[in-house]
């Protein structure tokens, strides 16, 4: 068998190559897996770098204080999600479908902040935010 001199350098290079390709691939997966919707919204949002301008809500008041909602709406929704699916808990005045009565545009309200802070919740890949 022909024996080529091999160096640890070569081995390290190979490992680095494998590692890099895994990194690139997984990044691609993450990007395509969860944020197709956000990327789309991104393209026609028009904020210019400052804090996002949110569309003014209709209606009197939110079901929770605005401050609390800003911080906790995601946990709130997620918690309720589990309870609703698994235990059948339905609070009609606080259902997700109700949000849109006041926050009428997903693009002008939800997406503004989500894009600004760079989160891409995938709830609305399936759930329809009523217009």
């Amino acid at each position: 068998m022909r024996s080529l001199q091999s160096h640890p350098v070569r081995f390290t290079l190979l490992l680095a190559l494998v590692w890099a390709s895994v990194l690139v691939l997984s990044h691609q997966v993450m990007a395509s897996g969860s944020s197709g919707h956000a990327a789309e919204a991104h393209s026609h949002s028009d904020y210019t770098g400052g804090p996002p301008e949110l569309e003014k809500a209709k209606g009197e008041a939110c079901i929770r204080p605005t401050d609390w909602m800003r911080r906790n709406h995601m946990d709130f929704l997620k918690h309720r999600r589990g309870q609703t699916v698994r235990e059948g808990l339905r609070i009609r005045s606080e259902s997700l479908l109700k949000c849109s009565e006041c926050h009428q545009s997903h693009e002008k309200f939800c997406d503004q902040c989500h894009n600004y802070v760079g989160v891409a919740p995938n709830c609305f890949e399936c759930h329809i935010y009523p217009k």
Partner: peptide, 8 residues
């Protein structure tokens, strides 16, 4: 008539 809150 269905109340505001129901549970299975």
């Amino acid at each position: 008539p269905s109340p505001d809150k129901t549970e299975a």
